[in-house]
Nucleic acid binder design. Sequence first.
RNA 1: CGGGAUGUAGCGCAGUUUGGUAGCGCGCCUGCUUUGGGAGCAGGAUGUCGUAGGUUCAAAUCCUGCCAUCCCGACCA
Length: 599
Amino acid sequence: MRMSQMLLQTLRETPAEAEIPSHQLLLRAGYIRRIGSGLYAYLPLMWRVLNKISQIIREEMNATGAQECLLPQLQPSELWQESGRWETYTKAEGIMFSVIDRQERQLGLGPTHEEVITAIARDSIRSYRQLPQNLYQIQTKFRDEIRPRFGLMRGREFIMKDAYSFNADAESLKETYSLMAQTYETILRRCGLSFTAVEADSGAIGGSASQEYMVLAETGEDEVLYTEDGKYAANLEKAVSIPPDADPSPFSQYEKRDTPNTPTIATLCKFLGCSPTTVVKNVLYEATYDNGKLVLVLVSIRGDQDVNDVKLTNVLSEMASHYGENALLGLNVPDEQAQKKWAAQALPLGYLAPDLGDDYIQSRKDVEPKFLRLADETVLNLKNFITGSNETGCHVVGANWGDQFTLPDQVVDVREAQARDRAVHDPSQHLKMARGIEVGHIFQLGTKYSQAMGATYTNEQGENVPLHMGCYGIGVSRLAQATVEQCYDDDGIAWPVAIAPYQVIITVPNITDPQQAKIAENLYQDLLNVGMEVLLDDRDERAGVKFKDADLIGIPYRLVTGRSLKEGNVEVVTRADQSSQDIPLEEVVTTLQQWLANK
RNA sequence: CGGGAUGUAGCGCAGUUUGGUAGCGCGCCUGCUUUGGGAGCAGGAUGUCGUAGGUUCAAAUCCUGCCAUCCCGACCA
């Protein structure tokens, strides 16, 4: 491509809207342009990068026997009602855009395609002889993100590769799942990224095993806990650990103490001179279920620990049926405003005890009349603990389960793992924390969707049984930006060769010099002839501008037809390290071919 | 949805306190000079000052509503 003919505008100044380096650079280098909040145009350079990534994905997916297809983005609400996700996706998490057509039909704009693909499988997979199957597509997804940010990292419209496998049983699913895990590593390695695979929570999508592929970067939105031996890595939401041991309680007698102005664990411990590990903290949540019922949840957890909302959400989702509900819509810590809706009297916040009376709850149809009391495992073995008294300004000390307080029936693990906790697989090791960008996520869905939607097949015994499903996603546009986040310097982007928009840029320092122009032109044709992707900077600009632009847009190799021509050489500069060498004109093409082949 | 901020030329910003007919840098166009790391000089074009209403002789500036965008949080396969 001749740069004189290309629509490319590089910016000298950083647009104010961009916060992180990759977003700033993609804007400055003319790869993307913001059209609305979370909506971006992929300009010609960006589209080439995205296509390169897509191509690598295609090659690797096809190599596993997966088949590419393209599913509709507009999806009938009925499909989502069958799976039971219409409510959660349009109301609680509100992540799906929904539209109503002129026949008053409700449609969703696809944030993911489990429903569609399961409907297809239901119709076309009849026999075990057809299994396993793995279908994938690469296309735009829509999600009504509450707060889009960081350019392509969290957009409302983005490109994704999603694959769905159908297997006869759990074992076969595991095989496909681990094949996909290998394939993902190959894809990301080919893209030139350094990444980590971590255990993850499967969230609203459901299912059992799940792994995320994280590009480690300081600006990542996810937190990853890992051990240095490389044997354990997990998303913070999912991570497990051994909490620090509790200190012995300084109290041996049960009594109520005045503890004025100690609504937080920190102030309380300072006042009493005790360790937070001797305190039972009681956290109040309100859970909303899909029929509109509100359940108040009181979680007792050790004072030095925090509740992991994702783990708590999972516990509460499983309990939906206890309340005659299908799904948990939302979970939050009620503020004063929210409390007024159901509290019969003002709550002694900061001084709650595990036995907070149910009479604090107004008798209302849409509110469960009793607290759902949960104990985190960390409070199970505490002796002579300190906790609230349900009276502002007072705590009790020296309390014990079975004496002053009844241990809740439900003992659960809802504790958030922390950096420096001991590792479960090897308690001599401590967890470390890093930030990451989630570029891929694979799930073993099991029969959640096939069962809900009646996607069954006939097995060898002639029985109709539900298909076992897996799903496997890669954020293509996010991956592109994550790469920039990992590959840039003060001068701009430095793309890995495999996904760079062009492999080579020929810079003509002085376009008015006929010799320079002629040699550059010949070189351009020669490189094109051997199938290379080449930019020819034939713009009537000063050399400095061309060098700056070449660095900014990050083409891996730059050929300069300048002063080295006197010796019959072309200067070849490697973008990644700015190293430069003069190569005889007639050897340039073959040398570059070799370099690219070795990449 | 809660907290904070911003909206003036393609981009970055000043001007708003104290109302008086819209400015700077970069970019863009023309000419001359320059030509290996975002050139110099001279000339030029570009704005419903986010939007609607109000106050006023007069509004980018003051008042009210609305909209949009960004940041923090909540939220987020």
